[in-house]
Design a binder for these strands. Structure first.
Lengths: 336, 336
DNA sequence: TTGAAAGCGCTAACAA
DNA sequence: TTGTTAGCGCTTTCAA
């Protein structure tokens, strides 16, 4: 039951607290007799170590936190799944922190009011510029995920966005698309992810010697299939036409698919569509989505590696690791 | 910086620890002079309270845990989102625990090795029978979510599954469906959710005076669109035909949609499809999904209410709360 | 191999 | 209104 202390176990077993502690921690040098006496007492009393006391004594919490805007976005849910699994393998519990994508909440993540909640933080900012992050003092080791070029002092894992969006755009060009649009970035106060992807798209279009019609840059209110579908509908109603679409993420692509179908436009015959993230659902839309797939396991592994090094005492300059990505070709923008 | 203690602040400010503590906690009776002196010292030193120490001293952690099989399943991700928001409003942080749906991990959730990790637990079991849960000793207050009838001693929030599946089946019958199938439950070792929904389906079919062809009960390997699509393909290849489908969840429905389209079957004209959960994606499939929508906010609110009562000391018998659900009619099984 | 005792940093009861 | 002090339960030297 609750309220049983190490002390109580020690008394019942007729040994010292140290011996009980040794047994609890599987310390090798404990005689068989002691061990079994202690174990009997532990189970008789139903003893469980108090984790707050242990944390206070050791200074370690055995927890990491993973922070991003919103778990209900499939990419983050799937990321959380992977990071949880990997963190568990390494002996950590994972605390999920959601910021709703507001700058105020993001600041809270970086400079927590309390110390000692977790041993380290993996954080994908959506609003805070990296430079501001680097200026905030934070007491737990921190690794940043995502698009922004992190400042020199902070560890960072990203994929090569420019290369990824160039690959996607190039795929559409090779399919013969001439009028390619971009969809799904937030209209007001876009996230750093959106900014990076859109600017990469602009570069890719000019690199392909195409001309970008600004009417084909279609922002949405929020990151959601609904808002992206609305944006596409508005563009179509306004008479804008396009034959290819690079989407800020798979959710935007799913919304686009929906709107295009309503207007009788066939995908990929009339409009080819490419998403981003390769969420599970991308395989099951109709048509299935061609999409940029970041190697999320690699992202998570690199982040945890660096975090553990920092926790272990490494205090060198920030490191920037680039994870792989691939273009998964499915029905919405098939092979040429 | 780290390593600054209440004591250090007190010394710098030339006051006692109690005074500093009062300031930190916004205790009303502190003179303005003291307060500003202390606040100056706090910010000069960069003091942050150590949360482990606070927890040890108070016995409260300010954290709740939410446990289920897998955040990457959209229903759980969306549930997590809602519970996090509500818990935050009530002053709790939320720890997410994932069990992978294995009985061993579920037992770990109930009887944690450590005490004092969280103040309370909200748990949606997928494998453990309620009876077994009631027998395990657990030291933090516990509220169960989901389908199983909980034992007398444990608080529980559920929706009326039998009514829900009867509503779905009735909707299909009213549309004129004669051969209605069920899809998406795990073939081996089905989760309690699957068991409940399938058995409810059987009852609903006989209540509608229809005959159930066992070939139309199509299990899948795991909960995923992929496996459900496979199950539907197999049935169609084997020559089984049906005009209505009740799905274990929206993921199964999404897989079914995909398989039906491959076989040239139109939804809803040839086969009407009803999902369960009303995940975000249910609005954006093509056709969009008619689905059973549990009132998840209500589920979360009821669970948190009961949990807070337990944390507050209530120790009466287990309470069973039933949350609302509705049938959201969309394209895959339209109004009749 | 086991025991004794001094913290870890904070809270809260009790005094002043 | 502010100060003093004894825990909270565990870990971890240092001795034995």
């Amino acid at each position: 039951m609750a309220g049983v202390r190490l002390q109580d176990v020690a008394e019942l077993a007729g040994v010292s607290m140290k011996t009980v502690s040794n047994v609890v921690h599987d310390y090798p040098h404990v005689s068989e007799r002691m061990r079994s006496k202690v174990e009997a007492a532990i189970s008789e009393l139903g003893y469980r170590p108090n984790i707050s006391a242990r944390r206070l004594a050791t200074g370690r919490t055995g927890m990491l936190s993973l922070a991003f805007s919103d778990v209900s976005l499939p990419y983050f849910a799937e990321l959380a799944r992977i990071v949880t699994g990997l963190a568990t393998e390494r002996g950590y519990r994972l605390l999920l922190e959601q910021t709703d994508g507001t700058a105020a909440n993001e600041r809270e993540i970086i400079s927590t009011r309390e110390a000692g909640l977790v041993d380290g933080v993996i954080f994908q900012p959506s609003r805070m510029p990296s430079l501001e992050i680097s200026k905030q003092q934070h007491d737990a080791p921190l690794v940043l995920l995502g698009e922004g070029p992190a400042p020199y002092s902070i560890d960072h894992v990203m994929i090569d966005n420019a290369a990824a969006v160039a690959r996607a755009t190039g795929h559409l060009v090779a399919l013969g698309c001439k009028r390619i649009g971009f969809i799904g970035h937030e209209k007001h106060d876009p996230s750093v992810t959106s900014i990076q992807r859109l600017s990469g798209f602009r570069n890719a279009i000019s690199a392909a010697a195409l001309e970008l019609d600004e009417a084909l840059v279609m922002p949405s209110v929020e990151i959601s299939p609904r808002d992206s579908a609305d944006a596409v509908r508005r563009a179509l109603v306004a008479g804008h036409r396009f034959d290819g679409l690079v989407c800020r993420d798979d959710l935007a692509a799913i919304g686009a698919l929906r709107a295009l179908q309503e207007f009788g436009l066939r995908v990929p015959e009339d409009v080819a569509v490419i998403g981003w993230d390769d969420i599970t659902m991308a395989s099951f839309t109709h048509p299935s989505l061609t999409t940029i797939a970041p190697d999320t396991t690699q992202v998570a592994t690199l982040a945890l590696d660096m975090l553990e090094e920092r926790i272990g005492g490494y205090s060198g300059p920030g490191r920037h690791r680039v994870a792989d990505f691939s273009l998964i070709v499915r029905e919405s923008a098939p092979s040429y």
